[in-house]
Design a protein around this nucleic acid. Sequence first.
DNA 1: GTTTATTGTATCAATATGTTACAATAATAA
DNA 2: TTATTATTGTAACATATTGATACAATAAAC
Lengths: 249, 249
Amino acid sequence: MSKEFRRQEGNVEGIGFLPGLAIDTVIFGFHDSQLKVLLLEYKNTGLYALPGGFVHDDEDVNQAARRVLQSRTTLSNIYLEQFYVFGDLSRYDPTPLKAIMEARGYIPPADHWLLKRFVSVGYYALVDFTKAIPAPDEISDTCNWYSLNELPVLMQDHQQIISKALQTLQRDLDQKLIGFNLMTEEFTMGDLQSLYETILNKKLIRAAFQRKMLGLGILERIAKKWTGGAHKAPYLYRFISDKTFVENN
Amino acid sequence: MSKEFRRQEGNVEGIGFLPGLAIDTVIFGFHDSQLKVLLLEYKNTGLYALPGGFVHDDEDVNQAARRVLQSRTTLSNIYLEQFYVFGDLSRYDPTPLKAIMEARGYIPPADHWLLKRFVSVGYYALVDFTKAIPAPDEISDTCNWYSLNELPVLMQDHQQIISKALQTLQRDLDQKLIGFNLMTEEFTMGDLQSLYETILNKKLIRAAFQRKMLGLGILERIAKKWTGGAHKAPYLYRFISDKTFVENN
DNA sequence: GTTTATTGTATCAATATGTTACAATAATAA
DNA sequence: TTATTATTGTAACATATTGATACAATAAAC
């Protein structure tokens, strides 16, 4: 992906890309009982942004999202879901991208394709925090996890995009069984409940939660137990079906 | 809207429009215990398609969808929801649009903007069948309701778009209270149940359905009763809150 | 061995949903 | 006018789901 932005920047007319269409991905992780998202910080600009990209003229839009996702997490086979298109006129603001290019020592012409109006397709992804290896791209200093409660000020409407992604995740959590994509291979019931509570932003009843989760028949209890606390050791569980919930479209 | 297509057709480069981005709207109605969708039939081509359009460079994408919706139904304040972006490479097929333009006696140049690859944002709308007045646009012969069970062969991937819209409607029906947007002002409990059964494609238990609907506290029982059958006359109900569920984004 | 905190699960309560039953009644026919 | 018919509104009960409480089991620390 390090070539990707040079391919975009020097290419004033944006040849090879779908014009005016961008991808933004909200990549969720879970750690220390907190929901995290991956953010990029751009060089010399202090700007924070969601991992994003543009669509090649020879790939599906969903493919492009998957490409962006893989290049930022060094993971494949991730749960990825399209959730909304952000197409308001008001989000059109060429200043950030101009600043990014100028910080790289490139002065774009006024009609550079990247400075035109963009409509952005929002995706959210669920990854195993312990497995993802955040990888900055050529134009960003860092690619790091940020807690949802302590987000820095974000570029353009990226804050709204994250909010909408979270809403969608909350809505989907009960229907589809996607929470497991945020867990490590093995986890305790407490871990799982903590995840649900964090996502839904409300306390759940321990006994009822456990009963329901076990009742779903998608958890396997592992022989060995967790150790560490001065109390009865909890069992470890594993998600039965493959964790490879790839987008179905 | 009659000027809209001339504005698109003669405008080889598509100036004034967002390039490569289209809108497709699945407009649902309910009549005779059947779900219907509005379809256009294009002149001299035998092609059937969803009402659609393109986005002006000075309007929001959601606005464009609303504009399309209003021009096809002669209604405003309609429930409208964005549900998916169709961006696969495989859907790129310039033949239908070329055929449409040629049937109008216009031979487009090979690089006409309308013949390029398009990504389409799908919306679904719920309208009162009795109030909508289907209006064909300049390039279509007819704009009519078709039962979901008896759809003609559709252009490009429009059949898939309808399927996905229906899935989304089924998912949203219980969460949000949107079914009422498909009803007339006054309706019997039987009408409402028939709507739910048709959308969800399964029988519901009469007593339980009635109890639940009344329990929601969003129905008002009207004094007068329905007449016509050789049996106890059902009450008429009205949806309490304004039926104006406009998209919240 | 005793204490401590937490887990796994049983038990009962409260709520929601599935099922059956039946009185009420508008139109029709006798 | 009266009986018939089909359908509605709702009660009553059964079953299923979820909420709330209780308690034995136990790994670590002392």
